[in-house]
């Protein structure tokens, strides 16, 4: 029997107090830390990616793809149809553009106006965008078409959120 290994009353109280104190401190700190890193943990609304088309169907010509997402709008949940113009650019990269005109929100069409066969055309006020979605100067829109974030997995194209871009 070694007396050294025995825990004295003072030590015992010390250990217990440190333990309980630490526990309480942790209890107080945890929510604070949680609040501090909250923006990082927050999942973006509708942030997930949706499979919209098979990659080998995508050509150099912009084609319209459609998919639906569940959107929660404060009071009610609804199914919202989303659309994108998808094509491959000269560097063989996939580009997915939002069809929403940056002027007042109409839906733009690829090559729908005979005078501008290589541009996106907005039927509402004649807004035009070049193939990369940049607005043509002198037409009503002031910003390029937003670009969808995309990824390719197992031969399928996934689209996420549309990111707006700075004006030309």
């Amino acid at each position: 029997m070694s007396d050294k290994k025995r825990v004295s009353r003072r030590q015992f109280l010390n250990y217990t107090l440190t333990g309980v104190g630490g526990f309480m401190a942790a209890g107080m700190l945890a929510p604070m830390v949680r609040f501090a890193i909250d923006p990082v943990l927050q999942t973006k609304e509708g942030g997930e990616m949706h499979s919209v088309a098979s990659v080998d169907e995508i050509t150099n010509e912009p084609t319209r793809v459609e998919w639906t997402i569940d959107q929660v709008d404060g009071w009610y949940e609804s199914e919202v149809q989303k659309t994108a113009w998808v094509y491959r650019n000269e560097k063989d990269e996939i580009v997915a553009l939002s069809p929403i005109c940056t002027h007042l929100g109409c839906t733009v069409d690829w090559a729908s106006n005979e005078e501008y066969p290589n541009q996106f055309y907005c039927p509402c006020h004649g807004g035009r965008y070049t193939k990369d979605g940049v607005n043509v100067k002198g037409t009503p829109p002031t910003a390029p078409l937003p670009v969808y974030e995309h990824k390719v997995e197992e031969g399928m194209l996934y689209l996420g959120e549309a990111q707006s871009r700075k004006g030309a």
């Binding site: 002027h103 007042l104 929100g105």
Partner: peptide, 17 residues
């Protein structure tokens, strides 16, 4: 219901005008 779907479709495409 059909009328509402109809007009919403038109409004969605041309909401800027």
């Amino acid at each position: 219901e059909i009328n509402q779907i109809f007009t919403s479709l038109i409004e969605k495409e041309y909401r800027g005008r």
